[in-house]
């Protein structure tokens, strides 16, 4: 039986080199809030655990082109304490802060939430709605792709061997815009989303919606960007009729399964409910911005 190995490099290049050189299964350790559970349950038996928390680039938040670049290993707690990001993208920060308890927040990261590729990951619909991109480093250099392209299915990502997500970029926040993320869980805390909905929208001078992005979590094999739902808002004053159409479009886009956390029918119904409520919250923020 091969023994598991632990490495904690301090540069991205070193991390990529370790990943490329590793035989067998490798796992990235950021916050570890998913990884350690999987290890303990013996669902995975990796040969290499690569701790990325010693890489400065992955643990920093920096300003870039009017937006923010957030290291993939920045914790939820650190993000929540960053007033700049919180002001610009409150929906994203709220989504990250919904992940688990205070204890989890001290460890959990957006990069981990994204790359664990759970369809129910809370931060992902909010990031998709925000138009965020993920920076990826690998043996063939670096690339930047939309967040919605990272996850491809439960536990699966588009990352090739040797690649890691190094940061997530949140673009500059347009004027008169707002974002929000809501999820439904049976309890008030500590559950995995049964449905999640992220909405980001921009208003024109006349109070009509000029741009919108709507994303749903936990209703498909990965988080969905729902264009039809966004179209229901664009060009409208985001009134009841528009919100009804949004809700219908969201429910129509949902293609969930029955599982231990909720039924298919329930998720379809609540997709619309939450999309509507998230849009109302985003609208309120856009009006106040």
């Amino acid at each position: 039986m091969e023994q598991m190995r632990y490495e904690a490099p301090d540069t991205v290049d070193a991390a990529v080199a370790l990943l490329v050189g590793a035989g067998g299964e490798t796992r990235i350790l950021a916050g570890g809030t998913d990884l350690l559970v999987q290890l303990r349950a013996e669902w995975i038996e990796p040969d290499l655990i690569l701790d990325v928390k010693k890489i400065p680039e992955l643990t920093e938040i920096s300003k870039e082109n009017g937006g923010f670049r957030i290291g993939a290993a920045v914790t939820g707690a650190e993000l929540g304490e960053h007033l700049g990001v919180k002001k610009a993208w409150p929906g994203v920060v709220e989504a990250v802060e919904l992940i688990g308890s205070v204890q989890i927040q001290s460890r959990a990261t957006m990069g981990g939430n994204l790359c664990n590729a759970s369809p129910a990951a809370d931060s992902v619909p909010a990031l998709i709605a925000a138009g965020a991109t993920a920076a990826i480093a690998g043996p063939n250099g670096r690339r930047e792709i939309p967040v919605e392209d990272v996850g491809t299915g439960p536990g699966r990502t588009c990352l090739a061997k040797g690649e890691i997500v190094t940061s997530i970029f949140l673009p500059s926040r347009p004027a008169h815009s707002g974002d929000a993320y809501l999820r439904f869980i049976p309890r008030t805390e500590m559950d995995i989303a049964v449905v999640g909905a992220g909405v980001s929208l921009t208003l024109d001078g006349g109070g009509k919606c000029s741009a919108a992005r709507v994303a749903l979590g936990a209703v498909a094999e990965r988080a969905l960007l729902v264009d039809a739902a966004a179209r229901a808002l664009i060009g409208t004053p985001v009134d009841d009729a528009a919100l009804d159409n949004l809700a219908k479009a969201a429910s129509a886009a949902a293609r969930p399964i029955d599982d231990k956390r909720g039924t298919k029918e329930y998720r379809i119904k609540v997709s619309g409910v939450l999309a509507r409520r998230a849009a109302q919250a985003a609208l309120e923020r856009a009006r106040q911005s």
Binding site: P186, G262, T263, Y266, V270
Partner: peptide, 17 residues
């Protein structure tokens, strides 16, 4: 549970859990 409540008030159809 929430699915059963929605089912009971007719907001959704069959709910199994």
């Amino acid at each position: 549970s929430p699915p059963r409540v929605l089912k009971a008030i007719g907001a959704i159809g069959e709910a199994q859990a």
